[in-house]
Amino acid sequence: MEDLGIKIIGALLTVILAFTVGMTYGGIVRKLTARVQNRRGPVIWQNFLDLLKLQSKKTNIAHGFMGHMAPVWIIISAGTVLMFIPILNGNLWFPNLTFHGDLIFLLYMMVFGSLGMALGAGQTGNPNSAIGVTRGLSQMVGFEIPFVLALVALMVQYKTTSIQDIMDIQAQTGTWMMFANPFAFLAALFASLGMFRYSPFDIVGAPAELASGPVSEFGGKYLGTMMSGGSIFAFIKLTLYVDLFMGGAGFGTGILATIMGLGILLLKTFSLYMVPVFYGWISPRYRTEQAIRYFWGWPTALGVIAVIWAIF
């Protein structure tokens, strides 16, 4: 019973942590981007202020059942996926529902947010939204291939489909997956550029082309909820990459160990997050077919090499 209580508190802490980190990273990136662009930029906590503003707005326009459900779907799928991601290795305060096969399960679950967005945007009837959704799904087809190949390489190399097991093996061998199979890491890293949708892969909501695409018709609480879901998803993707390729984070259950573990996690996730951000600063946007061609080029080739490397 005591364990259950800790798990419930731990789950709540996990959601708060994911939301806070995702929103703060977004704020830091907004500030850094502004400085690079010779601007002063907003405060780091601007995303929280934006969220407060959005949540305080009233929305009088309805876009049907799926229009209402889309933000809910996104936030629920974000919360659900989060529960299956190991945050800190061997820490009782951050339990997760990990099981054998959770890596495959997560592959499916991670697209639920995008599907929710697609269904909601589709019902708004705005052609910009519909085109944005089509672009998003097309891009997903592009980056999912190298990403899946990288994960297959991982599963073959360590003969497991459990994220927790992969983390444990990395801890035991003392070698991160990014060094054990660098091709898999690179393939997944290239795929992550598409996942985070920074330039040159911001084709879904390209403002000059589609007036923000799928979210064109969403505002107020709907947009605020989507923003929260997006922030949690950002944390999920980063933590998953750290767990799979960078040895995860965690030193035990004690207070000091938890703080140290979280520090390491933040260091690793932020370093990873800056890769698409840096690339985005200096890159114009691809067209949809160029983006797909990009993912099916070198990233896919690296993925295939990674699988062969894992087999032999």
Binding site: S199, S283, R285
Partner: peptide
């Protein structure tokens, strides 16, 4: 020209 292609860095610099 650069902003419509999603490259905002040049535009922010030049307008500044």
């Amino acid at each position: 020209q650069s902003g419509s292609a999603g490259l905002y860095l040049t535009g922010q610099w030049s307008v500044g």
